[in-house]
Design a binder for these strands. Structure first.
Lengths: 150, 150
DNA sequence: TACTATATAAGAATGATTCTTGTTCAGCAA
DNA sequence: TTGCTGAACAAGAATCATTCTTATATAGTA
């Protein structure tokens, strides 16, 4: 999934922080490591729980602030959602999502045919489009199964 | 934008409610009318404000419940968002969104080339895909302009 | 017209997130 | 190495969106 080793990513994290004049704190480092170690689409609280072992008295506010900062910088992507808690995507390479509208599950998929979609002229000219993605909405296999059972 | 007149839509609303055993209350009717009269992507509170004139003591909880119900039924679509308040889309026909990641603005667009995207086999077989859409993320013209000014 | 299940209003409760304030610390300079 | 300063942090209060609880009202039906 990740094309770089976590060591390389950490080095990149440090240099990017420096380049932007951001302090490299133990908290930020821990949050970054928790992110790149995630295979899912964690909410802020998930990351908080994952770093809490190593940092028992980290404030959850720090996690909120840091993830928000990381999303702005591009270290992580904010996942499109439907009004629940924000979820982040450590995979910043082009991919797409299936979203279960019943349980909220997110399934990633790669689809080269979708990666090269051409941005309409109108947006190309007036806006700065940083990402283009396809979202499938529906009901996942788990939820379909539950429906059948009941 | 709407291919049916609001009178036709209201009639459809009534028959759909009946078919599902749902009471046709003045509140639901007002909320439905506010929805089909919207050219934007209103939040629950926006709809609440729009019906408040006619129903000064409608509870906002009713608006929450009703919009949620309407989304389940398909009278309205829930818009993909980024952790802020839910937003609804009265336009249930196939279209796509540009999303400004700075101010949250949503721009609709039609793009026939995007409407016919083929759902990957994996989802076709195991999941019930009800909607496929393209999301452009970026910074809108307004926000770009502000950046230039400052 | 009366009945009953459904829907509603009001306000309390919850969950996610942000703000405020005082403290700590990373990065830089002496 | 030490001291300084602005940035970052912890803690808890505050806010915002949403849901829940409960008592009342009403739509649809008998």
């Amino acid at each position: 999934m990740m094309s770089k080793t976590s060591k390389e990513l950490l080095e990149q994290f440090r240099s990017q922080c420096k380049a932007r004049g951001l302090s490299i704190t133990p908290q930020r480092t821990a949050i970054y490591e928790a992110l790149i170690g995630s295979q899912d689409h964690p909410r802020t609280e998930d990351i908080y729980n994952r770093v809490k072992t190593a940092f028992p008295d980290m404030s959850i506010d720090t996690v909120y602030r840091t993830l928000c900062l990381f999303a702005e910088i591009g270290f992580v992507h904010l996942v499109e959602g439907y009004g629940e808690a924000k979820r982040y995507d450590p995979d910043t390479e082009c991919h797409h999502h299936f979203r279960c509208m019943r349980c909220g599950r997110i399934l990633d998929f790669r689809e080269p045919r979708f990666d090269a979609l051409d941005v309409p002229e109108r947006f190309k000219q007036n806006c700065a489009v940083s990402n283009i993605k396809v979202v499938l909405e529906g009901v996942c296999d788990h939820c379909l199964q539950k429906t059948v059972e009941s």
